[in-house]
Design a protein around this nucleic acid. Sequence first.
DNA 1: TATGAATGAGAATTCATTCAT
DNA 2: AATGAATGAATTCTCATTCAT
Lengths: 205, 205, 205, 205
Amino acid sequence: MSNDFQQTLITARRNLILDAAIEVIAQHGFQRTSIKQIAKHAGVADGTIYNYFKNKDELLHALVKRLTEPEAINLQQAQQQQLDPQVFLATEVQEQMRQMQSQFDVFRAIIPETIVDATLARSLYDGIYQPVFEIAECYLKQLMDQGKLPTGDPRVMARLLIAPSMGLLLMRLMGDDHIETAWESYQEAVLKTLTRTFLGDSDED
Amino acid sequence: MSNDFQQTLITARRNLILDAAIEVIAQHGFQRTSIKQIAKHAGVADGTIYNYFKNKDELLHALVKRLTEPEAINLQQAQQQQLDPQVFLATEVQEQMRQMQSQFDVFRAIIPETIVDATLARSLYDGIYQPVFEIAECYLKQLMDQGKLPTGDPRVMARLLIAPSMGLLLMRLMGDDHIETAWESYQEAVLKTLTRTFLGDSDED
Amino acid sequence: MSNDFQQTLITARRNLILDAAIEVIAQHGFQRTSIKQIAKHAGVADGTIYNYFKNKDELLHALVKRLTEPEAINLQQAQQQQLDPQVFLATEVQEQMRQMQSQFDVFRAIIPETIVDATLARSLYDGIYQPVFEIAECYLKQLMDQGKLPTGDPRVMARLLIAPSMGLLLMRLMGDDHIETAWESYQEAVLKTLTRTFLGDSDED
Amino acid sequence: MSNDFQQTLITARRNLILDAAIEVIAQHGFQRTSIKQIAKHAGVADGTIYNYFKNKDELLHALVKRLTEPEAINLQQAQQQQLDPQVFLATEVQEQMRQMQSQFDVFRAIIPETIVDATLARSLYDGIYQPVFEIAECYLKQLMDQGKLPTGDPRVMARLLIAPSMGLLLMRLMGDDHIETAWESYQEAVLKTLTRTFLGDSDED
DNA sequence: TATGAATGAGAATTCATTCAT
DNA sequence: AATGAATGAATTCTCATTCAT
């Protein structure tokens, strides 16, 4: 009883620290952010952070984990339904870009380290992109088999499906103001181009 | 005379250090790479590096500068010629991806810091992407005016032109093996999809 | 009544903690052992330890105290009896070495700190060695007066009486396997040499 | 040339740091002594110490090494000469106790950690005591074979040879003032008792 | 009384930078 | 110009101790 409550408190505090960490790290970068800064921002003592995370690196891994875990659900649903190609594409892309938008600071905090630390990269990759690839590859194969798509390497095509949004993310991370400001327009635009690319010259406005 | 020779020597040594820096930084990341490591890899003493660069950060800026300066040439050429749209696209994309391939380690070294340091990002952006955007935007406007392209925001479209290769770069940086291995196939594939997107269902090889 | 019972409980728990402390400290050394480790080993919470000991150092002093207090009895007995020299020697040495054997972990826990902390050293010295010295000095003087022993400084001789067993203890603490394994043989051997030294070329079994 | 000189300087500074370390550590104990204290005492910056020793523990190992290396010479000599038993004993004991006296602070610094850290103990043991034991055991066997000594386990006897001086060292480490003050008398006294023990009721003063 | 999360002082260690040679 | 030892600020992390529950 009190145990459950305790657990809730602990989880809450853990998340508090993670949220604080995201903000500061997104601003200054992981390596340039000290535990002291994170602690101060979270309103706790330095040592407290070590009650929740084994070390500074673990904090980053926890960020990746928190990012990858709950979102997975959305994908599973997409997988189970036998979707109309158009809907499939839309769902997939929208979901990707919606997450990039809502979790932008997390990506900003994580991605630079991800490029530098293979373990972290693998963690993020396995958590977010691998599943998408698998679904996409599977789906694309179906389309090819049904003759709705010209034959090609599904691995390549799956990656091309993700590439535009990833590219926009990277450019935004590198400070592209227009992408930052007009993210939603890009969301639409990407969907449009992908539709055209993968489903032929479709009829749209 | 002796002065010129001196200058050449100095430039050579500077580049020696930069090349060493790229290798080590690409492997371990900028923050995790110490001046000592770079110096050792370059075969000079720690202090020597400070004869060529004001401080560690300057080294990174020098990398960006060296990356942006000579390559600009390729773009200028593209700009001056009144190109056939198909050729324009091909040239642009190929050039982008060729550079990403040949300078991969530089990108690996630079980009994580770029995401974290706005000044650096600006430097890279202004040096590499802004010019491309300007040319592309300008070119796309022409196409629209000529009715060869449906109307749309040229800023968005220009960025969509770059996005796929940027996305592939990011995924490769994050350790995607297939992209690393089959970069050339992706180069072709990107060109194909962009052609289809921007120039309609074109005739492919 | 309930008070007495309470007191017993408290003493029991105190000893529980001390016993746990001995085990962990003997294994890792006092400074390298954290309160957390001791608490865990004792099956109590960190804070609980502070209900029984003012601070970490007090725990060590308590160990010394517990070691010195009850054992004193054995000495008193030795003192009161007018012993045959041979028996005196035997009793004294056996008792020393028996205690070293049975309380080895305590010595292992205490002695390193004892060397470093004068107060602690004094505590142990006054509790264990001083009394022995006093008895021994007194006894040796008697023997000299009776001409049974060549004249000499009783302080020196008393210390020489203890030195061999102390030396063996130290060597064992430093990891001498043979001494650890064959402690009993050493007990005999020490007795034999001391007999020869202090009581002349005696008749041995 | 300049290289040799450099090397000398480096060795000198290393020894400067070691000497400073001995003084401070002997006073407060290794764990309670911070690198800062040692650096201050040595008149160098904190970081400088890490130019000479990989970490704090290495400093301790260096102390042991410096203690064990040069002294070994004395033993080798003893080994090669076919000594008169009396002379052998005297040399051995004197050497031991002379070293304990002259290097007392080193022992004070080292021994507590030695008890707590098996690796360190092994290092000291192998460096100082093992050689003595080997020589002594070998020598004692000879004596036994020649019938000059009653038969017994040479391992035990060798250790009994060392035990008294070790015991005195320990007692002195634990703050025994008389031993500290009258070390030389103890040196003589130990020799006398060992002579009596191992060589029979010898004729002396 | 017992608990164990929070605290923050203090320790070891790293490393960019300087500067005497 | 090149060197590399010295520096000390800054960082991560530990852990004795406290205190609200």
